[in-house]
Nucleic acid binder design. Sequence first.
DNA 1: CAAATAGTGTCTCTAAGACAATATCAC
DNA 2: GTGATATTGTCTTAGAGACACTATTTG
Lengths: 270, 270
Amino acid sequence: MQDEKAFLSGYSLEDYPRPSVTADIVAFRIRESDSGNYRRNSQTALSVLLIKRGGHPYKGCWALPGGFLSPGETIEQCAFREVEEETAVKPASLMPVGVFSEPGRDPRGWIISNAFACIISDPAVRAQSGDDAADAKWFDVDFAQDENGDSVLTLQNGEDSVRAVLREERTQFGMTRYNLLDSGSLAFDHAKIIAAALEALRAGAADFEHIFDFLPETFTLAELQNVQETVMNISVLPANFRRKVANLVEETESYKQGAGHRPARLYRKK
Amino acid sequence: MQDEKAFLSGYSLEDYPRPSVTADIVAFRIRESDSGNYRRNSQTALSVLLIKRGGHPYKGCWALPGGFLSPGETIEQCAFREVEEETAVKPASLMPVGVFSEPGRDPRGWIISNAFACIISDPAVRAQSGDDAADAKWFDVDFAQDENGDSVLTLQNGEDSVRAVLREERTQFGMTRYNLLDSGSLAFDHAKIIAAALEALRAGAADFEHIFDFLPETFTLAELQNVQETVMNISVLPANFRRKVANLVEETESYKQGAGHRPARLYRKK
DNA sequence: CAAATAGTGTCTCTAAGACAATATCAC
DNA sequence: GTGATATTGTCTTAGAGACACTATTTG
């Protein structure tokens, strides 16, 4: 014990090189847009929060919210802090996406990033700029393969559009590694991080583990189905969908009225 | 551009506090032990590699192999390097387990650990001590709930036995968080890391994604089944198991003879 | 009424689990 | 032959997908 104390007092971590450590967050939201037809239900799109970098490096490029780990906090606390700074909303939970430590990924030097995904349900959230950000916007996500088999990530918000190309590489353990072919106007390796987050989100969405986080307290089964389909990019027949989720939800006594068609019963997560 | 160069030359990451970063590895292996009966197939156990710490802190305790991240390498490269130093075997791949950044988890100071799991198949591997280690041994793993609902991790190698108690906490995204109640003679928060690695290993073992890594090139279906059952702690009827894996393997022309019962055809991963 | 979604019922197909039965070897 | 595992086949059940049909609302 005496021994150990002596050891520790003589020991200095500062004698060895250390990286800087950041948490970067891929914040997902389901964005609803009116379909124009009073009968039709609204369309939805998966969108992700990006911030226009106001300072160097990658000035003017779009980047994920994130920031440096401070002493005395866990990397998760750091991630929560950064999301709250940018969105003023505290997400229900964080989903670990991966660690990005490729040398040279940040021109400022040796910086490794811990990536997390989170789900922001509050549709009223006003993404607000932080210190380092000139602007923050939600971008609709499109992630699909092109004719060469490469993955194309397209992020769109009105006039602002970002396009990145990645090459998939299947590794063991069912993981996919993405290599950056063209990062477009996305800063750093953030296209890679978004791709990995999308994959993690989709993998977890199959069992309804976190689909409910996108929705308010009560919802129609069509809304629930719509969210899952939007996230996973699949399509299921409504009749089969209701059977699948029957044990996960419980009825309420309310209905969603005034939609130009038969009212839908509202459900709650069980 | 000029602007950015100027910014970068004036910028110093060293002005901000930085943690030390390590990679710790949970190396799994299937250990076979003879059943004593010439007719019976051999028994198997899941085991994990631990190293007896030769230096402070936690001198004399058992710890996971691992080491500090060096400049110019990724965290995965660091993990591979550390496994090879300890086992002289390069595993097929690494499975990310999580980041452990709780302040105070290491008495030496601010150190965050990136945990990986890997599978070592070579049964002939001689775990060899590294610099910092007085001894390295494979411990049979037992991980189950006690009567209070807490998880008890027992690691056993002959006379050496380690017992740690953790409390499970279910978080969103289907993840489980483990809190350390009693770490026994395991160093640092390594009991937590082993628990998380076990959970990740089991989750991935269901779809045979990495079960094959435990086995040699060719194997009998009973061996394959045994590995899956050992890892996942389940039990399936052999008849049903073979149907389930029928599309994942292909026959060879060889048989495993001399077992005191009908020879079993050897298969290969497809 | 027309258009749209909400909701029910039913058929098929597949995969998993239970279990019976046969095959083959070492001693 | 005996005791063990290997291997095949069949029955049942649960769940997913396809699809036909009915119900209800608003303009």
